[in-house]
Amino acid sequence: MAKFISWNIDSLNAALTSTSARAVMSQDVLRKIAAYDADIIAIQETKLPAEGPSATHVELLKSYFTGYHFEWVSSVPPAKKGYAGTMILYKEGLKAEKIVPKLGAPDTMDDEGRLIALEFDNFYFVNVYTPNSGDGLKRLKERQLWDSLYADYLSSLDQKKAVIACGDFNVAHKEIDLANPASNHFSAGFTDEEREGFTNLLAKGFTDSFRFIHGDVKDIYSWWGQRIKTSKINNSGWRIDYFIVSDRIKDKIQKSEMIDSGPRQDHTPILLEIEL
């Protein structure tokens, strides 16, 4: 049984080095993730420098995750500094080849460290931090192109071997994937265009593992906005973090669920267990 975890950490640097109340909550989540002893852990929104994790970051990361290799990609010029970024940790003993794809995406999206993959003997593992369409949907057109290019990329991998893709996809696919759909049809993450982009991705031969296991269950989310202090208490959330898998291995999925992050708002980690 292979075990995978994905989490948008909203600054690995802050989680590892800060002593703020929020950082302490993040550290609790890191310890919780470590206890699962997963084979692969994907992290999004690392917000590390262009040159990647410092020696201090590495030392602190290894204090949580002993016995793991890790690969990363950060935002580099002309993209913003300390922005986005992704990382994958995988157990020592596993053999993997790092891939940093360039989609040909618009604006600086290809330079923001949003996409990293590992090739294993019998599958690809892909970690994505999908661009947000932004306030006023100012980046929606660019986001639509990203979605199309990303779907084509996963499809190209799927031609060679099975794919497991995870991360913060920044879209609630269906009305049951957020608490208040009626008032959010023109909000970033729930526009018709973004939802259609995710539908198009699945149509290329992929399965949303959570829905495969749980069907149309409601009120289970992976993200609660930080701007509203009661969003998590009231479970006014969105499901925007996913593990998707090639259709041909969907019957091997054993578990797909959220990991409780306690009182910490923002994203909660997600878990996939699958027979590989």
Rank of each mutant, 00 (worst) to 15 (best):
D247L: 12
S256I: 03
L12V: 08
I259C: 09
A179H: 13
I164D: 15
I176F: 08
F198D: 08
K102G: 00
H69C: 08
L157K: 06
D121V: 00
G262K: 06
S20R: 02
R22G: 02
F4W: 10
L61T: 02
K232P: 03
S222L: 06
T46C: 13
T199G: 05
I270A: 10
Y36G: 03
L157F: 10
A42I: 06
H214S: 05
A50T: 00
F70T: 07
G136I: 02
K138D: 08
Y124S: 07
G85F: 01
K255A: 06
A34V: 03
W7K: 11
D251T: 13
F169W: 14
M109H: 01
Q144T: 04
S183Q: 10
R264S: 13
V29M: 14
Q265N: 13
Y68A: 07
K47L: 01
D39V: 02
D168Y: 10
W146S: 00
D37T: 04
V171S: 04
D266K: 02
P78T: 00
D247A: 12
A2L: 13
E112Y: 01
E97S: 08
A42D: 14
Q226T: 10
N170M: 07
I220W: 06
D107I: 00
L89R: 07
N184T: 02
D251C: 09
S155Y: 14
Y124A: 08
Y68T: 09
Q27H: 05
I88N: 15
F210W: 15
N122P: 00
F198I: 05
V24F: 07
D152H: 03
N132G: 02
I270Q: 09
F190E: 10
G225C: 11
R31Y: 05
A35Y: 08
P77L: 00
D260L: 08
R264K: 12
D251E: 15
F120T: 04
F206P: 10
K81N: 05
N184V: 00
R227P: 02
K91R: 14
E71D: 15
Y124K: 03
T130P: 03
V73Y: 12
I253A: 12
A23T: 01
P263W: 05
A34P: 12
L154E: 12
A15H: 06
A203G: 12
P181R: 01
I233Q: 14
L30V: 07
A35S: 15
N200Q: 12
F243T: 04
K229R: 07
I253E: 15
Q27K: 13
R211E: 14
T46D: 14
I99Q: 13
P131Q: 05
N170W: 05
K252F: 09
D192A: 12
E273D: 11
S75A: 12
Q144R: 03
P78Q: 01
A34T: 04
M109Y: 11
G113T: 01
D10P: 00
I249C: 14
F4S: 05
F243V: 04
E193C: 00
K32M: 12
L276A: 04
P269I: 09
K255F: 05
D110L: 02
V217A: 14
V245L: 14
C166R: 06
A79W: 03
R239G: 04
F198W: 10
I88M: 15
E92N: 13
L271A: 04
T130H: 08
G104H: 01
K232H: 08
Y242S: 08
R22P: 01
G67N: 12
I33Q: 11
